[in-house]
Nucleic acid binder design. Sequence first.
DNA 1: TCTTTTGATTGATTTACCTCA
DNA 2: CGTGAGGTAAATCAATCAAAA
Length: 353
Amino acid sequence: MELGLSLGDTSRPFGCSTDKNRSKMMKNNKGLGFCMALGVGYNGREEDEEEEGDDEKSSDEQRTDNDNNDSGRKVSSADPIQLNLLPLVPVTRNQTGFPWSSENGNSDAGSRGFDVNRLPPSAEELDDGAAISSPNSTVSSFQIDFSMYRNSKRDSEIAGLNDGDNERTSSRASDEEENGLARKKLRLSKEQSAFLEESFKEHNTLNPKQKVALAKQLNLRPRQVEVWFQNRRARTKLKQTEVDCEYLKRCCETLTEENRRLQKELQELRALKTSNPYYMQLPATTLTMCPSCERVATTTTNSGSTAAATAPPTTTTTAPTTATTNIQNSNPFSHKKPRFYPFSQPHHASAAS
DNA sequence: TCTTTTGATTGATTTACCTCA
DNA sequence: CGTGAGGTAAATCAATCAAAA
């Protein structure tokens, strides 16, 4: 059963069930069968892609761009609940320098003594500073003591920064090549994290060009940027799942309450029927909702004509003592909740008598 | 010392592309 | 020439580990 509620990956479209996703969910036996329009607070669009119209794209790049655009389409712009996970100090791309650069005296390294996140200058950098640092950024002004993080493998990776597509495989195998050096865990500076967050708000996935560019800007390896985005996506999804669960819990509680109320109402009606046997001797009845006031009118159907014939009914027919409740109408968050008055006279003058 | 956060790794899966029969 | 099968590379994700705060 699908109720149109999506639990989990909100980068998927409202309605949730692309065949691919559905089959995946079925396969993993993890799908809860709910889909709900709860969006993550990013737009995912990549319309501002600077490479757009770039005729020099390789086929791989084009494919990646298409993939990213696909992911951009995943997000509904009408997400009813938006989770803003990014309470950030705004760091705009228009800034001429990074706030953590030594130029504005805001360097994390100053307080920590050194910044393990900063890369040592590679041979190529030393030869040609522009190879890594954008001319407009102040990244090149970093003064780094990176000796504890340094090893020959990383140096070779750093030297290969421009080869963003190859860094992954080499990085994967890097652990064996650390020659016994314990992995020193990086901590990105606040400013680096903030910049990555800003980028994530623009695109939650990166194509290779973007990845390498971002890595250059932040003086990180492309693999680090990639990992950061991976983790960010995973943790965003996790948080969203928590929100979804809360929402569904509230839905469930409200529906339970609604069900209890309807059961009670049904009991009362049955009691009324037994105490007054003539009361319920009505012909088969159609419940017709008035589109203007949303009240349900009771009309007879045994003659084939409905009392509210002037307006098309918005609900379907039921037997006199049963009423099918549209799940949408039971939506606890619906602001248009039809009321069910099976025995009240409709305000239409033509109600059955 | 314990908990939380977060950078990183690993294995699985999907997809696109290529080659070959 | 078109087609399906098999191989490969790349991207992504889920699960997990572990260092740092």
